[in-house]
Amino acid sequence: MDAIILQVLNGLDKGGAYALIALGLTLVFGTLGVVNFAHGALFMLGAFCAVTFKKIITLEQIVLSKTELSPWGTPLEIRTPYAQQWFGDFGNVLIEYSVPFSLLLAIPVMLFIGIAMERGIIKHFYKRPHAEQILVTFGLAIVLQEIVKAFFGANPNPQPIPQIFMGAADLGVMVGMAENVITYPKWRLVYLFFSLGVIAAVFAFLRFTTFGLVVRAGMSDRETVSMLGINIDKRFTIMFGIAAVVAGLAGVMYTPILPPDYTLGMDFLVLSFIVVVVGGMGSLPGAVLAGFMLGVVQSLASMTEVKDIIPGIDQIIIYLIAVIILLVRPRGLLGKRGVMEN
């Protein structure tokens, strides 16, 4: 029983990442009707925003010490990050919390990348068949990941976890169980709450703002909205930017869990597509639900008890679920009737 609770928790934070990416994918599909294979690359770009931020913030000034010697006899190099020199204690805080602070960098950068991508290329593909949309965004994903590779190399770039989030939290004690039964890495808890927060923010934005109202109206009937004199295209472009930001934020916060390298995007892309399909094309709650569900199912399937019964099930369970859902319930769990049912 404890093991199952632990695995569910394990699955939830991974599910959070899936849900965030799938949410962005669904937003893009629901508003623009574009199947975006470059969305995984946006996740990856977000992760590399964190890498860049840390690189900038830890640029160091190297001074040779006049009095002290290093163990091998040369003058001791004293390294002080510029951030520390300029901002003092705040500089240290910046370095310590480089990952959360890089969220601030990621938001404008991802918004810009998203809007540039939509205006630059994807705009021209609204009327073309889905197959061509898949192809062009797939090509775009290759280009993005190769650019990242050219700048950052092919090796993973591990990111630090802030000191206070290191280690594990003993969740069992909080609900009155014995000690050390359910311990869980703190950062993963942070990620889980972070993803829930972002999801809530996106839903609130769509539900409670006028902008969101117009966008929702546009999703259900684009033509009528534009006939009412609203420039719906412009708002959809901004939604693409927001989807890119959501993917980017998911990527930033995921870096301490999985050191990002340039293939990160492709790895997550396939899974998040499957999440979208399982949840139902164009259904935002579906994407979130399916994201968390598949995350949990995946980690439950990797329990040794399950693997003993069906060997290899942890490797394929997600794909298997996708196949079954597609065959039995083509519009996904929460998909609307008639949206991409064939």
């Binding site: 199947v35 898949i134 499957i274 399909v277 290899g312 394929i316 794909y319 298997l320 996708a322 064939n342």
Partner: peptide
């Protein structure tokens, strides 16, 4: 049994399953 993008994703899922297995 499905067409369009669902066909693509089904084939993708099967290929990934074979690869992982």
């Amino acid at each position: 049994r499905r067409s369009g993008i669902y066909f693509s994703i089904l084939t993708l899922a099967f290929a990934q399953m074979s690869y992982k297995l």
